[in-house]
Deep mutational scan, measured.
Amino acid sequence: SDPSEDRAPESARVGNIPSSTSALKVPQLKVAESAQGPAAAHTTDTAGYNAMEESVSREKPELTASTERVNKRMSMVVSGLTPEEFMLVYKFARKHHITLTNLITEETTHVVMKTDAEFVCERTLKYFLGIAGGKWVVSYFWVTQSIKERKMLNEHDFEVRGDVVNGRNHQGPKRARESQDRKIFRGLEICCYGPFTNMPTDQLEWMVQLCGASVVKELSSFTLGTGVHPIVVVQPDAWTEDNGFHAIGQMCEAPVVTREWVLDSVALYQCQELDTYLIPQIPHSHY
């Protein structure tokens, strides 16, 4: 159930021909089969995070001529859309010479989310990475209204306002976009420790780096000194050995919190207090 199309920051360009055919990675995205229709094609874990990302398996898109002007500035990904909605975005992107990729990268400028009429969405990996990267996180209605009015409308009017977990109007995407000089995790050293489900560890690490944190791979690698705040992030329900995560405190002095601390902080683009996310640790033995 991992969102495989989000696994690594590679891009698939639509609308320009790469210098070599080997560089072309066409979105071959799968549809989750469901008797209840597209709305039930998501699996949500206890964290309220949509693990099964969206989309559609299609034939290789038709490439435009390399001489045609390509908008190098805009690059989009989509999240939560049905196959039909994805194809509408594809046509919109081609019309406006926008790069459409299946994986979010540093070059991505827009994340197009499936939302309700009030621009509230589910939480997906692309949603988190879009906010963390200060990108435009907009409703699919931006595409449909632009098509209806036959011009590209202003993104401000379609920015995602909230999500089904953290609140319907928290304005996290807007706050992140306007606060890239004040990253929420700066001054923190974060170790993403142990197993994680539904989200590859490297993507979680990239997320906290985008928010200004330094990533530490091992508990023994924390910088011990003033001005640096170490934090260990774990996902308790992913551990097979009972309560192993309670013993992390015996290996390092850092506070240990659940992954929800990261996800909530990123969604709201406000660093949350650790208290409600802390995992009790077995104290050091004193002999």
Rank of each mutant, 00 (worst) to 15 (best):
S1P: 10
E5F: 03
E5Q: 07
R7T: 07
A8K: 06
P9K: 11
S11L: 09
A12H: 15
A12T: 04
A12K: 11
A12Q: 06
A12F: 12
R13E: 08
V14N: 08
V14L: 08
N16C: 07
I17P: 12
P18T: 08
S20R: 08
S22P: 05
A23H: 05
L24S: 10
K25V: 12
V26K: 11
V26H: 05
Q28C: 11
Q28M: 03
Q28P: 07
K30P: 03
K30E: 03
V31Q: 13
V31M: 12
A32Y: 04
E33G: 09
E33Q: 05
S34R: 08
S34N: 06
A35G: 05
Q36W: 15
Q36Y: 15
G37F: 05
P38A: 12
A39K: 09
A41V: 09
H42L: 11
H42R: 07
H42K: 06
T43G: 09
T43D: 14
T46R: 11
A47L: 09
Y49V: 10
Y49K: 11
Y49R: 12
V56F: 08
V56R: 06
S57D: 08
K60R: 10
E62M: 10
E62V: 03
L63P: 06
N71F: 08
R73I: 01
S75H: 12
M76K: 01
V77G: 04
V77I: 09
V77S: 02
V78S: 05
S79P: 01
G80V: 14
G80H: 08
L81Q: 08
L81K: 01
T82H: 06
T82A: 09
E84Y: 10
E84S: 15
E84I: 14
F86I: 05
M87V: 13
Y90F: 08
K91P: 10
K91I: 12
F92V: 05
A93N: 06
K95L: 12
H97Y: 09
H97F: 10
I98G: 06
T99A: 10
N102H: 14
N102C: 08
T105E: 14
E106K: 07
T108H: 04
H110Q: 00
V111L: 03
M113F: 02
M113V: 04
K114F: 06
K114A: 10
D116A: 00
D116Y: 01
A117E: 02
A117R: 07
V120M: 06
E122Y: 10
R123W: 01
Y127R: 00
Y127P: 01
A132K: 00
G134S: 10
K135E: 01
V138C: 10
S139Y: 01
Y140V: 09
E149A: 06
K151N: 08
M152Q: 08
L153Y: 05
D157I: 15
F158H: 02
F158R: 00
E159R: 01
V160E: 00
V160N: 00
R161G: 04
G162L: 00
V164D: 05
V165Y: 13
V165D: 02
N166C: 15
G167T: 02
G167S: 04
G167Q: 01
R168V: 10
R168E: 06
R168K: 01
H170F: 00
Q171H: 07
P173E: 00
K174L: 06
R175D: 02
R177Y: 00
E178G: 07
S179W: 04
Q180F: 09
Q180R: 09
D181P: 07
D181H: 08
R182I: 11
R182L: 14
K183D: 06
K183M: 05
F185S: 01
F185R: 00
R186L: 11
R186A: 09
G187C: 06
L188M: 04
E189C: 04
C191S: 04
C191A: 13
C191R: 02
C191N: 08
C191V: 11
Y193R: 15
P195I: 12
F196S: 06
F196L: 13
F196Q: 10
F196V: 06
M199E: 03
P200Q: 08
P200M: 02
E205T: 11
M207V: 12
G212E: 10
S214R: 10
V215P: 15
K217Q: 14
E218S: 13
S221C: 14
F222R: 09
G225R: 06
V228A: 07
H229R: 13
P230L: 14
V232P: 01
V234L: 14
V234P: 00
Q235E: 14
Q235R: 02
P236L: 10
D237N: 12
D237R: 02
D237M: 05
A238L: 15
W239P: 08
T240H: 07
N243Q: 13
N243A: 15
F245S: 12
H246I: 09
I248T: 09
G249V: 01
Q250R: 10
E253V: 11
A254C: 15
A254M: 11
V256M: 10
R259C: 00
E260V: 04
E260C: 11
W261T: 02
L263R: 01
D264T: 10
D264V: 02
A267G: 10
L268V: 13
L268N: 11
Y269L: 15
Y269R: 11
Q270V: 15
C271Q: 15
C271S: 10
L274W: 12
Y277G: 02
L278V: 15
I279K: 10
P280T: 14
Q281C: 05
P283H: 13
P283W: 15
P283N: 09
S285Q: 08
H286Q: 15
Y287I: 10
